[in-house]
Amino acid sequence: MADTTKVVSEQDLIVAFAGTDFGGADHRKLIEIGVLKKAAGYCCGHTLTRIMIYMDLINEKGALKRRGRELLRAAYHELMLNGG
């Protein structure tokens, strides 16, 4: 399991997702997948996009910022090295 807590803390997630309703989804997984989608040129939902902008993971145009690249590396490090 990837450890992205050094990039995005649990407190960061609590603050960023406050007042949203993602039906019990794993917020950490949502941003990991969201950043991957943005890096690949895909779209995310409006709320998740705004959360990623707020968390300084992407810019207003959807491009990854430094923190977003760090999250992406941490989240998918094992996959990049071992293919799964």
Results as ranks from 00 to 15, higher is better:
Tyr76Leu: 02
Leu64Gln: 11
Cys44Arg: 10
Gly24Asp: 10
Ala63Gln: 12
Asn82Thr: 01
Gly23Phe: 00
Leu48Lys: 00
Asp26Lys: 12
Tyr42Ala: 15
Lys37Pro: 06
Ala75Thr: 04
Asp56Val: 05
Lys38Ala: 13
Met55Trp: 07
Ala75Gly: 00
Asp26Val: 12
Lys61Thr: 09
Ala63Glu: 13
His27Asp: 10
Leu71Pro: 09
Ile51Pro: 08
Thr49Ser: 11
Cys43Ser: 15
Ala16Tyr: 09
Asp12Gly: 05
Thr20Pro: 11
Met80Phe: 05
Val8Ser: 05
Ala63Met: 11
Asn82Ser: 00
Glu78Pro: 04
Ala40Pro: 05
Ala63Ser: 14
Gly24Tyr: 15
Glu60Gly: 14
Ala2Ser: 04
Thr4Leu: 01
Lys29Val: 08
Met80Arg: 01
Leu57Asp: 10
Gly19Arg: 07
Ile33Asn: 12
Met80Pro: 00
Asp26Arg: 13
His46Thr: 15
Tyr54Ser: 12
Met52Asp: 02
Leu64Phe: 13
Val35Glu: 04
Asp26Ser: 15
Ala2Val: 01
Glu60Ser: 14
Asn82Gly: 01
Arg73Ala: 15
Ile51Asp: 09
Cys44Glu: 14
Lys6Tyr: 12
Gly19Met: 11
Gly83Pro: 03
Val7Pro: 01
Val15Ala: 14
Phe17His: 02
Glu32Phe: 03
Thr4His: 03
Ile51Ser: 08
Lys65Asp: 15
Val7Leu: 05
Met55Phe: 13
Tyr76Ala: 04
Glu78Asp: 14
Thr47Glu: 08
Tyr76Trp: 07
His27Ile: 05
Leu64Val: 12
Gly24Thr: 10
Ala74Asp: 09
Lys65Ala: 13
Glu32Trp: 06
Cys43Tyr: 09
Ser9Trp: 04
Val35Ala: 05
Leu48Pro: 02
Lys65Met: 15
Thr47Arg: 07
Thr4Met: 04
Ala18Gln: 12
Gly24Ser: 12
Leu30Trp: 03
Gly19Cys: 10
Val35Ser: 00
Gly41Ile: 02
Glu32Thr: 00
Gly23Leu: 03
Gly34Thr: 05
Ile58Met: 07
Leu30Tyr: 03
Lys6Ser: 13
Gly24Pro: 10
Ile51Trp: 09
Tyr76Lys: 01
Ile51Gly: 08
Val15Pro: 03
Ala74Phe: 11
Ala40Arg: 13
Lys65Asn: 13
Ala74Gln: 08
Thr20Arg: 06
Ile31Phe: 08
Ala75Glu: 00
Gly23Thr: 02
Asp3Met: 11
Glu10Gly: 12
Val15Trp: 03
Cys44Phe: 05
Gly83Phe: 04
Thr4Gln: 02
Val8Lys: 01
Leu81Thr: 04
Gly41Leu: 11
Ala75Ser: 12
Arg28Thr: 00
Lys61Val: 11
Gly34Ala: 08
Glu32Val: 02
